[in-house]
Design a protein around this nucleic acid. Structure first.
Length: 591
RNA sequence: GGCUCCGUAGCUCAAUGGAUAGAGCAACUGCCUUCUAAGCAGUAGGUUGUUGGUUCGAUCCCAACCGGAGUCACCA
């Protein structure tokens, strides 16, 4: 509709004022509630070229629209409000109310792959709140892009090697007494995380001891026996020492078992999992290629570098002086590997904004220095940090909010709240608690603009009232209850079966809001922002609840009016369901 | 210090350069004999960090300053 209006506007401008205007739907807005109308055009941009007053331009355009599109209009200052007959909205409702895929675009057979990497955990500690934001964002954006017709492939890149893993391994060897997840009834990732903390504790003590003997802090950190041993272990790992590799396998497997449980509870599934131990060497060929091309060079100390001063960045090391690879090396390699495997049109990396610089470099090195076409396909979906009231989370200092604990707490709160309200007379109560508790958590995180830092206060547990998932879930459950009642009473409310040709303002407001849903999904896809979906659904639910409160449905004797209201309710429930599903949140039939 | 991002109600967050800057929480007032009160209606709360600029119009764009975060590794 907006497109039609924009096209008509272009014609009108040309005919009336000889203005050539590029059709652009963004100038067509929804009329604000305080004013009368369906769509609004701001005419200020055209008054200068038309050499007329804003009111005159608006009126003349209004006349034109009346003739072409059979609408009426009013003018307030420079704002032209267009009003369409109710049948426009009723037709929309009739066409879409039973379309279960409403808002979703079907993925074409030949649609190229859109690759999205997220989660990317280290295997030395369990997942925490920061990872939750990453996982929820990645998962939700995947769902949204799929709904926009993209062919999405979700990948995870597990950082399963490196000094941090060796630290956990070493501490377990020294202090673990053979403890296993089974023997201690501890989730595997938590057990391994415990020894990571254990390492740090003993390491700090050693550093302190050395410092007391007069060794400088810097030297003490290098000389501490635990650190020396950990580094030795890493070297043995790289040399394929069977003993170290066996321990590494065993502890990583514990962690994977733990991660699997966490992912399962979060509702997250990957199409492919990469392991850094299998990919970290891949970038070396690309580095050689760059050296041959002359875009990289050996520094005096033999480290391979790239000079990015022409891009406003610094010199960056791509290969250590001993020939081993760094983070950037392996990211160059995995990018190429993925490109060859999937030929994606886009490679999205969901990674925190602390790595903005890294991705700037990655894009330039691949795309411009090495001239790879897939360099341009890289998109860093950079999200803000989750902060606690007293600042950032630090895993070694124990100021983290653990992912599993948080989920468990949310589900528990859902249970408490539900019994408090006396609403647990539902089958599958445990499923309901989970839906509400995890829904509240997911919504709390996803409703915030991804690129912004956000605050989480563990003291004030997440609300179940107001702008929250339970509010929206509750709205859905109430609608379902209405629809069940209609079915029980044999009421057929399909618009083709009842006679309606007009709608009241409150009804039209809701229909217009529902009409927006597909556009919101598209916009959320374009901007990769689940927050847009969340805000939209909340506004819709609010809108519906007012309607629900003020407008009786079953007391209405006019079958046409009653049918219309039920039909609006049905599509509202569907949009809530489909929208929440894009956030990875389920909605109950009853609550 | 260089670069990047952010500053909106007491708190957490919204607002494609457009009409009187909106929600939720917290506070206060009403509404369950009525389709589910995890709800609805209402009151109060703002110099959109500051100062300039761009224009018909700026929370949004530009500049400077103030305040905060991130980053500037042969860590990932």
């Amino acid at each position: 509709m907006k497109l039609k209006i924009a096209q008509t506007l272009a014609e009108a401008l040309h005919e009336l004022y000889q203005i050539d205007w590029q059709t652009d739907t963004s100038i067509i807005q929804n009329t604000k509630k305080e004013f009368e109308g369906d769509f609004t055009i701001v005419v200020f941009p055209f008054v200068k070229m038309a050499h007329k007053s804003p009111e005159m331009v608006a009126n003349e355009l209004g006349q034109y629209f009346t003739q072409k599109l059979h609408c009426s209009f009013n003018v307030v200052k420079g704002f032209l409000n267009l009003m369409f007959p109710d049948t426009l909205w009723l037709d929309f409702l009739r066409k879409n109310s039973r379309n279960l895929q409403f808002g979703y675009v079907k993925t074409e057979e030949n649609e190229p792959v859109t690759l999205i990497e997220f989660s990317s955990p280290n295997t030395n500690k369990p997942l925490h709140l920061g990872h939750i934001r990453n996982n929820l964002l990645g998962d939700s954006v995947s769902r949204i892009l799929s709904a926009c017709g993209k062919n999405v492939v979700k990948v995870n890149l597990v950082n399963d090697r490196g000094i941090h893993i060796c630290k956990s391994m070493l501490a377990w060897q020294k202090f673990g007494n053979g403890e296993t997840p089974e023997s201690s009834h501890t989730k595997g990732d938590h057990l391994v995380g415990k020894y990571y903390v254990e390492f740090d504790k003993h390491y700090k003590a050693q550093v302190k001891e050395l410092e007391e003997k007069g060794v400088s802090k810097e030297e003490a950190e290098k000389q501490a026996p635990l650190m020396v041993e950990a580094q030795d272990m890493l070297r043995r790992w790289e040399n394929n020492d069977p003993e170290v590799r066996a321990l590494w396998q065993q502890m990583n497997n514990w962690v994977y078992d733990g991660f699997d449980m966490t992912y399962k509870q979060l509702g997250i599934v990957f199409n492919k999992v990469y392991y850094e131990s299998q990919t970290y060497l891949l970038g070396k060929a690309l580095v050689d290629e760059g050296l041959k091309k002359g875009v990289f060079y050996h520094r005096n100390d033999q480290a391979v570098c790239v000079d990015l001063h022409d891009k406003g960045l610094d010199e960056k090391v791509l290969l250590r002086s001993d020939g081993t690879s760094v983070y950037m090396t392996q990211d160059l390699g995995t990018a190429q590997l993925r490109y060859e495997e999937f030929h994606p049109q886009k490679m999205i990396y969901v990674v925190g904004n602390e790595q903005n610089y890294h991705f700037d470099v990655l894009k330039i090195v691949l795309g411009e220095k090495l001239g790879k076409t897939f360099g341009k396909a890289i998109y860093h979906l950079s999200y803000g940090m989750v902060e606690l009231p007293n600042g950032k989370m630090k895993s070694r200092e124990g100021t983290v909010v653990d992912a599993d604990d948080l989920m468990e707490e949310m589900i528990f709160q859902a249970k408490e709240k539900t019994s408090e309200l006396g609403k647990n007379a539902v089958e599958n109560v445990n499923e309901l608690y989970e839906m509400i508790g995890l829904g509240a958590l997911k919504y709390f995180i996803l409703k915030v603009d991804p690129k912004k830092n956000m605050l989480f206060n563990p003291e004030e547990s997440i609300d179940f009232n107001g702008n929250t998932a339970p509010f929206i879930q509750y709205t859905h459950a109430r609608i379902k209850s209405l629809l069940r009642k209609a079915a029980d009473n044999g009421i057929d409310y399909a618009l083709d079966s009842v006679s309606v040709n007009s709608a009241e303002n409150s009804e039209k407001d809701l229909i217009k809001s529902l009409y927006e849903f597909p556009q919101v999904v598209q916009q959320a896809g374009d901007t990769m922002s689940p927050a847009l979906i969340a805000n939209y659904i909340f506004a819709l639910a609010q809108n519906f609840n007012s309607f629900y409160q003020e407008t009786p449905i079953f007391k209405e004797e006019n079958a046409g009016k009653r049918g219309l209201r039920l039909q609006i309710s049905e599509l509202t429930a569907l949009v809530i369901k489909n929208g929440m599903s894009l956030l990875g949140i389920g909605v109950p039939e009853k609550m």
